[in-house]
Design a protein around this nucleic acid. Structure first.
Length: 507
RNA sequence: GGCCCGUUCGUCUAGGGGUUAGGACAGGAGAUUUUCAUUCUUCAAACAGGGGUUCGAUUCCCCUACGGGCUACCA
C-alpha cells in the first residue's frame, strides 16, 4: 500500500434493482474508505445502451441514501473527476484503445456477431484468442491495405486486446492472496465495441486510473477477467498506479446452489433487492427489504456479517462500529448462502435496540397505511416502548400496537364464549363501576385491585384475565394486560369492556 | 469441455500443529409468563476423502471428490 489517499468506487450498471450482494459491495467499499479516511466514489457504468433501464440510476442513488452510505463523489453531486457516468465519458476511451492498437497490444476485428456465433456453435471450445485469431477477420490476419480499406469504408469493427502467449499474470488479492493465470488460455476480450462504447474491461481500467482509485472491490465473478485488466494496466503504462484488488465472495442461494438471484427471492419468499423495484417494461414489482419492514441498520448489519466478522462473538454492529472494526483481511474467501431467518433475527434485534424515538416515523407510516392517524406523538412513543420487543418487521407494529389507537373490530370469540358465565358478566359490570371511580394509573395497582375483585367474586384470576385481554385487544396477543389498561386510560377501557360485553353475552 | 476460486454443526461463522473444536440463527426440551413474544437454562449438531510433513494434524503441503464462478460487441 502506498501513502496515497484511499479512494474506492462502487460501479454499478443501471440495469435494474440493486441486489443485496451489490449493497454488500457498497458497504465494504464504504467501510474501507471511511476507515482509512478515504473517498467513496459512485460511478455509473452505463456502457451497454441496450440494457439501460430508465430510473435504475435514481433507484441506486436512493438505495445508498436509505442505507446511509453516501458517496463523496457521484453523478448526482459531482466531484473533481466528473463526469461519473461512463456514457458521458465515451469520447475518452477510444483514444486509449487506439493507443493499444498502435503499440501492438490490441487489434481491429471485423467479424460480425453472427460469424462468431457460428464459430462458437461449430467449433468445440472456440475462443477468440491465439488459436483462432489468424483465421478470423481482423487487423492481425488481414493484409494492411485491406484493413485500411475496411476502416476507411467505415466497416463496423471492435477493438480486441491481443492476449500474449505463454505468460503468467499474477497478483495478490487482498482476500484470496496469490492468484495467477496463463495468458494463452484467456481470450481476446473486446475493449471497444462497434458503437464506440468501451466494454467494462477497458472502462474499468481507464476510469479507475483517471479517478485515482487505490483499492478495487468487486464480486468474485470478476476474477476470471482479472488478467485482462492487469495486462491493460501494464500496457497503458500505469502499472505503478494499479489499485489493489479484492474479490468478494458471492452470496449464494439458501437452498440448492448457485449465486442468489431475484428469482430466488420470488421462489422462496424473501426480498433480494434493497428496495422495491418496479420494472415499467414488464410491470413486474420486485420486493425490497425496506418495504418489507427492515431497518437500514439491520440490513447493513446482516450484510456486513455475511462474509465478514471481527473475530469475536459480537454480531450486532452499528455503522460506526463497523467502520472502526472492519478489515478486508477478515473477509472470508468462500461464498455464503443467504439465510432469511437470520436476516429477520437481525431486524428484530435492531428494533429492540432502537429507541422509540427513532422508530416513531416508520411505525406511524405503517399505522397510517392501515388508516390509523397518530396525533399524540408521546403516546406513540409509549406504545412503541411497550411492544417493540414483540416485533420482527416494522409492519408487525400494526398487529402489536394498532389496538392502542382503535377499538378491536372483531373478537376472538372462540377463546371466550365457550367458557362464559353469568358470573363473569356480573364481574365485569362491577369492575366497570369500580374503574369509573378509579384514580390510580399505575399498572401494578390496577392489577392488584382487579385481582382483589375477582377473588371477592369467587372467580379464578385466569378466568377473567383472558376475556379482559380479548376485550381490549380483540385476541390473544399483546403486552401485559394492565400495561394496556394504563396506557388506554380508564374511560377507553370501560368503553371497550362495555362494547365487548355485548358480543360476549349475545346468544 | 477449458480456466479460476473455494470446502469447520442444517445455515452464518470462530479457531488453529497438542482445544471437552467456541458462538449465533434455525430445531428439540425445560423455566418464567394470565395471551403471545421477550428473557433464561438446556440438548442435539461440524473439521469432505486420501496421501504426505511432524512426536503429533482439523490446522501446513499434494492429490482426489464435491461446490461455485467465468467462458458475450453484459456488467
Amino acid at each position: 500500500m502506498t501513502d496515497k489517499k484511499v479512494r474506492v468506487r462502487f460501479a454499478p450498471s443501471p440495469t435494474g434493482g440493486l441486489h443485496l450482494g451489490g449493497v454488500r459491495t457498497v458497504l465494504f467499499n464504504y467501510l474501507f474508505a471511511k476507515k482509512h479516511n478515504g473517498d467513496f466514489v459512485l460511478r455509473i457504468e452505463d456502457t451497454d445502451q441496450t440494457r439501460y433501464v430508465e430510473g435504475a440510476e435514481q433507484y441506486i442513488l436512493d438505495c445508498l441514501k436509505w442505507c446511509g452510505l453516501n458517496p463523496d463523489e457521484s453523478p448526482e453531486i459531482g466531484g473533481p473527476y466528473a463526469p461519473y457516468r461512463q456514457s458521458e465519458r465515451k469520447a475518452l476511451y477510444r483514444e486509449y484503445a487506439e493507443r493499444l492498437v498502435m503499440e501492438g497490444h490490441a487489434y481491429y476485428a471485423f467479424d460480425t456477431a453472427e460469424e462468431l456465433d457460428k464459430n462458437r456453435k461449430e467449433i468445440p471450445n472456440f475462443q477468440y484468442g491465439q488459436a483462432y485469431r489468424q483465421t478470423l477477420r481482423n487487423s492481425l490476419s488481414l493484409p494492411q491495405h485491406e484493413v485500411d480499406e475496411l476502416l476507411a469504408a467505415g466497416t463496423p469493427h471492435v477493438i480486441r486486446i491481443k492476449m500474449p502467449e505463454g505468460e503468467t499474470v499474477s497478483f495478490n488479492d487482498m482476500i484470496r492472496g496469490y492468484v495467477s493465470f496463463e495468458t494463452g488460455l484467456v481470450d481476446d476480450k473486446v475493449l471497444l465495441k462497434a458503437d464506440g462504447m468501451p466494454t467494462y474491461h477497458l472502462a474499468v481500467v481507464v476510469d479507475d486510473y483517471l479517478m485515482k482509485i487505490t483499492h478495487a472491490f468487486r464480486g468474485e465473478e470478476w476474477l476470471p477477467s482479472a488478467p485482462v485488466h492487469l495486462l491493460l494496466w501494464e500496457y497503458l503504462g500505469w502499472k505503478a498506479d494499479m489499485p489493489q484488488w479484492a474479490h468478494l465472495p458471492l452470496i449464494l442461494k439458501p437452498d440448492g446452489h448457485g449465486k442468489l438471484s431475484k428469482r430466488d427471492g420470488a421462489r422462496l419468499g424473501f426480498p433480494v433487492y434493497a428496495m422495491n423495484w418496479f420494472d415499467a417494461k414488464t410491470g413486474e414489482l420486485t420486493p425490497g427489504f425496506r418495504e418489507l419492514g427492515f431497518l437500514p441498520e439491520a440490513f447493513l448489519n446482516l450484510l456486513a456479517t455475511l462474509g465478514w466478522n471481527d473475530g469475536t462473538d459480537q454480531e450486532l454492529f452499528t455503522l460506526d462500529e463497523l467502520i472502526e472494526k472492519f478489515s478486508i483481511e477478515r473477509v472470508n474467501k468462500s461464498g455464503a448462502k443467504f439465510d432469511f431467518e437470520k436476516a429477520k433475527w437481525f431486524n428484530a434485534e435492531w428494533i429492540k435496540k432502537s429507541g422509540a424515538e427513532s422508530l416513531k416515523l416508520e411505525v406511524a407510516k405503517v399505522l397510517a397505511e392501515k388508516g390509523i392517524l397518530v396525533e399524540d406523538q408521546e403516546y406513540l412513543e409509549k406504545v412503541i416502548k411497550l411492544v417493540k420487543e414483540r416485533c420482527t418487521l416494522i409492519p408487525d407494529f400494526y398487529q402489536q400496537a394498532g389496538f392502542f389507537f382503535e377499538q378491536p373490530k372483531e373478537y376472538d370469540l372462540n377463546a371466550v364464549k365457550p367458557k362464559w358465565t353469568d358470573a363473569k358478566t356480573d364481574f365485569y359490570n362491577t369492575y366497570i363501576t369500580q374503574l369509573s371511580a378509579e384514580t390510580a394509573t399505575d399498572p401494578h395497582e390496577l392489577e392488584t385491585k382487579f385481582k382483589a375483585l375477582a377473588e371477592e367474586k369467587g372467580l379464578k384470576i385466569g378466568d377473567v384475565m383472558l376475556p379482559f385481554r380479548v376485550m381490549l385487544v380483540g385476541g390473544k396477543f399483546g403486552p401485559h394486560v394492565f400495561d394496556i389498561v394504563a396506557l388506554l386510560g380508564k374511560d377507553e377501557t370501560i368503553s371497550r369492556i362495555t362494547k365487548a360485553l355485548v358480543e360476549f353475552t349475545a346468544a
